[in-house]
């Protein structure tokens, strides 16, 4: 009979993963993957949350599933490009269906959203369970990802030079794209998120920016779902910026917060999973949840303690 909480063997949990060169290379890939997934999701998620699109992210992450499955069935491989096309197609179809149902039928937004993404998800699960066990994607993988298998993935070669493993490379690329997109289009993203009328008067197309953002979101989800699964991706999108918003009130600060937070999530989740011998991706989100809880308690902006001690002052502030 094993205990639920095994005794914490300090050296085994914290030191052993890095002891030999082989272990180090193996585990560094896992942690690196975790950092990049939570970083890319956290950065794009800051805008998703600020635009109140968190549930749209939820819907899209469920909605890409049939696209992935069909791409996989037709090409019989998990090559990045077809998967990407399939996922983006399904994601866009999903958001289109939601909008169509919302506009053309008496359904309210929440019902349209829930109906569409559960249907897409059910179709995806059905397709994937019918693909048999010989495939790389299996139900467990979509539910909580297989970040632990990152080092097992095949490598990509440039000629004969090995550049790195496929998932690491693709998430690295996506992270780069996101950082670039945010730095280049920061102003557009801010204006369209904050004040659509101002964007109109500045000659910006709100629709284009919206769909651009949705596309980047779909790319991020595709690159991440293999490691953390389609549902934990949502956590990765929402937790960093909401946690940061308990301390910072400006977008650049919230975006920068994603960097330390993603490092912390990844290491924390890795050690927790090693100690308890459970899902790494799940542990990363549990760590994120703990961070959120601490921020909620101690945060300088609307944290529980701050509100208790400084309530009087804020009331005065608002009255003038």
């Amino acid at each position: 009979m094993t205990e639920f909480f095994p005794p914490l063997d300090f050296s085994d949990t914290f030191w052993a993963p890095w002891a030999t060169q082989k272990d180090f290379a193996w585990n560094a890939q896992i942690v690196g993957m975790g950092i990049m997934v939570s970083l890319s999701c956290g950065l794009i998620g800051s805008f998703i949350v600020a635009r109140k699109l968190a549930l749209m992210g939820d819907a899209i992450s469920h909605g890409i599933l049939p696209g992935l499955a069909i791409a996989f069935i037709t090409t019989q491989s998990n090559a990045l490009f077809p998967m990407f096309i399939g996922a983006c197609g399904a994601g866009l179809l999903c958001s289109f269906c939601i909008e169509w149902l919302h506009k053309k039928t008496p359904l309210k937004m929440d019902a349209a959203l829930g109906l569409t993404f559960t249907s897409f998800f059910a179709l995806g699960v059905l397709l994937i369970t019918q693909m048999g066990n010989n495939t790389h994607i299996d139900p467990e993988c979509l539910l909580y990802g297989e970040i632990g298998f990152t080092p097992l993935a095949e490598s990509i070669y440039w000629g004969s030079v090995e550049i790195g493993s496929r998932p690491l490379l693709s998430i690295g690329l996506v992270t780069l794209v996101i950082i670039l997109t945010i730095t280049v289009f920061y102003k557009q993203l801010m204006v369209t998120s904050f004040d659509q009328t101002l964007s109109v008067s500045l000659g910006l197309s709100v629709r284009t920016i919206h769909y651009g953002l949705m596309l980047v979101l779909a790319i991020t989800i595709v690159a991440s779902f293999e490691s953390v699964g389609v549902i934990l991706v949502i956590a990765m999108l929402i937790f960093p910026s909401t946690t940061a918003s308990f301390f910072f009130t400006r977008m650049p600060a919230i975006l920068l917060c994603s960097f330390p937070l993603s490092i912390f999530y990844s290491f924390g989740g890795f050690f927790l999973a090693r100690w308890l011998d459970c899902s790494i991706a799940g542990s990363m989100v549990v760590v994120a949840m703990v961070c959120f809880g601490i921020a909620w308690l101690l945060g300088t902006e609307n944290g529980i303690l701050t509100n208790l001690f400084f309530r009087k002052r804020t009331i005065l502030d608002h009255s003038n």
Binding site: A54, I231, A235, I238, C278, V286, M289
Partner: peptide, 26 residues
């Protein structure tokens, strides 16, 4: 108690609890 918008709050609870469940079940 916070300024987290409703959709984010739903997402937080949904994915956070789910992750906890996954950890426990695995």
């Amino acid at each position: 108690t916070t300024k987290v918008s409703l959709d984010s709050a739903l997402g937080l609870v949904l994915s956070g609890f789910y992750a906890l469940g996954i950890c426990l079940l695995t």
